[in-house]
Design a protein around this nucleic acid. Structure first.
Lengths: 194, 194
DNA sequence: TCAATAATATACCGAACGGTATAAAATAAT
DNA sequence: ATTATTTTATACCGTTCGGTATATTATTGA
């Protein structure tokens, strides 16, 4: 890693939590220079504009999340156990394992869906990737005979994602941790019934 | 309604869809003057600042949504039929019955949860009101013997909200209407099993 | 109808916005 | 060690931001 690559990475790491809390429109260049201690000249020497920083920050947030989730999944043997990681892990989504500011996919999807095509496409790519990984896990579980053959993987994947994202949104806005607990318990029951 | 009340209402109606698509930070005063054809002087003669317009616009969007939903619910006799309105109605959430830009509660919750206390509280109030109405419908259905006595109204209310909001978010960002259909079908099955 | 009042338009404020040309400084290759 | 190159800082650009004082116009009650 040469200097510019290191600086680029440094900027991404410092701004990723800001973009995820304040959003794209809510994050200014002075937020970026403040968080990094660098000047505009340095930022624009490594990124061509604010968009490029935002997109890199989103990808960083999503990758970090996926890596963390996968590392937990890989510890489990059965596909049911792998899926059961989610209700368990997301109970602690306010902890340091998770990106600051909530789910980057949902945050970006909601802000960008009607306004910012590039960011929207990033969120879309990420969401589909996540969706596909659920479909894969459920189909694998069906192959292994863990889940019922009549289980529809796509339908269930969508329910899993909705309960997780719903849980985050509802809990963050109401401040009621019990709502997250309730939803993650519902999710657990659904996975157990697959 | 005197002049100022009419103008105030006019401003709210014209800006509500803009705030719901662009968000609070993404909506500028020139967006507001453009959409209304009025000048800043007129806007600030009727609202003390941008915040007040945003909050009024949010309340307008939410009220409109609630009134529409309730008018459909009131057509049904049983509580199961009332709940089944939701998966049915939300299949057409891109239509003109629904606010432009998606669900105002989710949009506002996601944008404001870490940044804008006042707006966050509006979203919180609205979400709790919606939640309570689901709890009420389910408990009434239990009283009438329509639903199983072991059904937990709070748990199910959270699942219903999550599937609806998840469906909107996923469908808007992926563009895949089938995802909404799948989720509204899952919701239907859950309501039928209450 | 006319005066008092209320609502709107105009013109402006300072600050912050995203972005850039260029000079200074640090890095990397010889 | 010296030079060529890359990276960073400085100073600035025009534009837009949210907001306001004041003049003008429209509404409303007597």
């Amino acid at each position: 890693m040469n200097k510019s690559e290191r600086t680029r990475q440094f900027i991404i790491e410092k701004t990723a939590p800001i973009f995820n809390t304040k959003g794209y429109a809510g994050t200014s260049l002075s937020d970026i220079t403040e968080a990094t201690g660098l000047t505009k000249g340095s930022i624009y020497g490594n990124f061509k504009n604010k968009d490029e920083v935002a997109i890199a920050a989103f990808e960083y947030n999503f990758d970090r999340l996926l890596i963390m989730l996968n590392s937990e999944i890989n510890k489990k043997k059965t596909y049911r156990e792998k899926l059961l990681c989610f209700p368990e892990l997301y109970l602690g989504f306010l902890g340091e394992k998770f990106p600051v500011g909530g789910c980057p996919i949902m945050n970006t999807a909601i802000e960008a869906d009607d306004t910012h095509t590039e960011l929207k496409n990033e969120a879309k790519k990420a969401l589909i990737k996540w969706f596909d990984s659920f479909v894969y896990l459920i189909n694998k579980g069906k192959e292994k005979g863990e889940f019922k053959p009549e289980t529809n993987a796509e339908d269930k994947a969508l329910v899993i994602i909705s309960l997780i994202e719903g849980g985050i949104m509802i809990t963050k806005v109401t401040g009621k941790m019990n709502h997250l607990k309730s939803l993650m318990n519902s999710l657990k029951l659904i996975i157990e019934a697959l």
